[in-house]
């Protein structure tokens, strides 16, 4: 079973040279720590920066330089700052190559829910609805089950949706899965996790074809 950091590490393997990448809050943020040394990517944060760098050294924090998670950041050489309308022009106009975000639920048709639990929790969608509606390449990074042990990979989402038929790939603590017309297609297992365990933890339709390799981290 993977830790959250290992989920990020596995997704980092998907990064390709010269991609512009938007990382959501939570597990996706950790991906920046695992970019392969031979891959050059530029991180976008939707509050208005391309070329987001690592956290600042202590004493060098700047209140006027944050990411969409409201964390203090730095700007890489060649970075650029812009307003929110321009930022979402990049997103809506499909100029971003990869979007990674967290989710509360994902359906086996690629629907995603991550902004609201009716009557209990309302944080808002932030930029997630714009991102999922437009991005061509969306990976969800999340735990396979919620804190109550219920599967987050469902036939249908039960929570209010963020977007429909948009997620392409899911990486969890148990598995890597593609979303196909016929449901979740199991691609890789986390080290030490069996296909049976993944089947048991997946409520949506799961396609298992042939031998499923273990992930390499």
């Amino acid at each position: 079973m993977l830790s959250k950091d290992q989920i990020a590490q596995r997704i980092a393997q998907e990064l390709q040279n010269n991609w512009y990448v938007n990382l959501g809050i939570g597990i996706p943020t950790l991906i920046a720590n695992h970019v392969p040394t031979d891959v050059n990517v530029v991180f976008q944060s939707e509050n208005g920066i391309l070329g987001m760098g690592p956290f600042p050294f202590e004493g060098e924090e700047d209140a006027d330089l944050i990411n969409a998670g409201k964390q203090t950041i730095t700007a890489m050489p060649g970075a650029v700052i812009f307003d929110s309308a321009t930022s979402f022009a990049m997103i809506r106009g499909q100029h971003i190559n990869l979007t990674v975000l967290g989710a509360m639920e994902v359906s086996d048709q690629g629907d995603i829910a991550n902004w609201k639990i009716p009557g209990r929790m309302v944080k808002g969608m932030g930029g997630a609805m714009d991102l999922v509606a437009s991005a061509e390449n969306i990976i969800v990074a999340m735990m396979h089950s919620n804190k109550r042990g219920q599967s987050k990979l469902l036939r249908q989402c039960s929570l209010p949706l963020t977007g429909v038929k948009c997620v392409k790939k899911v990486v969890t603590n148990l598995a890597v899965l593609d979303i196909t017309d016929k449901g979740f297609k199991l691609l890789e297992r986390a080290p030490g996790v069996t296909v049976e365990e993944i089947e048991k933890a997946t409520a949506g339709r799961l396609i298992v074809e042939g031998d499923i390799p273990e992930m390499e981290l």
Binding site: E46, S84, S87, I91, V122, M125, G127, D130
Partner: peptide, 23 residues
């Protein structure tokens, strides 16, 4: 969150990019 869930506060949540574009 408390005022919203109790109904004291009216809230219209809209996607961030739509908010920017609407302004």
């Amino acid at each position: 969150e408390r005022q919203m869930l109790s109904g004291e506060l009216e809230v219209d949540l809209i996607p961030q990019g739509s908010l920017a574009a609407r302004c």
